[in-house]
Simulated assay, not measured.
Amino acid sequence: MEVDLRTMVFNVLLLMLWSLQTCFAMISDAGSIEFDGGSEESDHETLFDPSFWYSFSIGYVCSASGIIFAYMWFCVPWAQLKKTKRKFMSSNVGRHDIRAIKANQVPQLLLYLLLLKKGNQEVSRVLDKLRSSISFMELCRATDYFNMTNVIGTGKTGTVYKAKLSNGSKVAVKRLYDSKLFETKFALEIGILHRFKHGNLVGLLGFCTERKQRILVYEFMPNGKLSDWLHPLQNEAFPLDWPIRLKIALGLARGLSFLHDCCNWKILHFGINSEHVLLDKNFEPKLRNFRSAELMKESQKKLGKKDVYDFGVVLMELITGKKHVEMSIDFKVIDSSLLGKGFDEQISCLVKVAVDCIQLSPHQRPSMLDVYKYIERLWEGYETDD
């Protein structure tokens, strides 16, 4: 139906332009007759006098402008987006019953605002009206009123506490420092993790916006951050064996491939590093921290090559056991704990993947989907105990 409308409007537009050209031609003929001193008979031969055709042409110009405006408004994609925006905002944000928005509508609304590059003010307006999925008092009890003894991590945006909900489940509770400063980052976490469920994205179990609080509740990851395993303190060293490292590389590639290529919204993480990879009890990697993420259109997917580069850096960390700064000096040294155990060929293959990912030119880097398929082939026939 949409295609038929566009075709009809286009055909009408062509017809009007052709008619307009005919009018100007008749004006030109009439003017030339008078200029050449045509006789009274020749004047009568013209259907109408020139003043009529001038008025008629002006009318045609106005009509054509209206047709063009209508075409741009209803048929051009960016105009259609604006129309959708008005409809969506009037049905969800502009009403007085914003508080009644259901939990499953939250991600769609927030993602829509973020896609349109809305600032903190509009995002705050929505967040302030939404009902929390977990009450503030329940989170207070779960964290022993945010007791410092329950802190398991601190970052630029907030503090993470280990907690136990009333149903007995263990969770990680992140409380943002300044709610107004990090509204967009808070909304990104809800919009992405609440809407898109994947085995290699950390699970968002709920959120709280009561009393101007900005609190996120995640599934608990008993094995902590990947960086703590790759770069442990001297008295905490416990190196990961190769099958576990390959499993982590595969899971991380799978999660990024999902974000880039498999979900309807093309999501770029823009913050991939070993600090932002959590490990569950089976060492399955879970990507976290979407505070720098951006939502991209199909035409902007090439920007995802930044994620590919960062993934390559994490691969080199898995292979060498060294931090990125150390790798810049001697990144070719493979972790000695991996050598001579029958995995050398697989390690060499993964080194090649990592080198391809960290090419200086983004155009020379593979897509995350290609990377995932390649690592999946390395994993075929490989079994580890869960």
Rank of each mutant, 00 (worst) to 15 (best):
S19H: 13
F186H: 04
G59S: 10
V314I: 06
P366F: 07
S361T: 12
R175I: 02
P222A: 10
K212R: 10
D261G: 06
S39F: 03
K174N: 05
Q364K: 14
L268I: 11
I192G: 05
S179I: 04
L181W: 00
G37Q: 00
G342E: 05
R131A: 12
D29V: 14
V3I: 12
E138S: 13
M16P: 01
A70Y: 15
V308S: 04
I375D: 07
D49I: 08
K297T: 11
S28E: 14
G31K: 09
E317F: 01
L360Q: 13
G191K: 02
I248K: 02
I358S: 03
W229F: 08
V76R: 15
D144H: 05
G94C: 13
V93R: 09
M221A: 09
F56E: 09
I33W: 02
A64M: 13
S227T: 03
A79P: 05
G168R: 07
E317D: 01
F52I: 09
R377D: 11
N167M: 07
S65M: 14
S57D: 04
S292E: 09
H198S: 04
K102Q: 13
K297H: 08
W18T: 14
R86Q: 14
S55G: 13
S166V: 07
T149N: 14
L279G: 08
N289Y: 06
Q21E: 08
G206P: 05
H231C: 00
E41V: 13
M148N: 06
K162T: 10
F146M: 04
L246A: 10
L233F: 03
Q300T: 00
N200Q: 02
C140W: 00
D307P: 04
R254W: 02
F24G: 11
L193K: 05
G191D: 02
S51R: 14
E183I: 01
I33Q: 07
A293S: 15
L338R: 01
I33S: 11
C263G: 00
M89Y: 15
K322G: 00
K281G: 06
K286H: 09
K247Y: 10
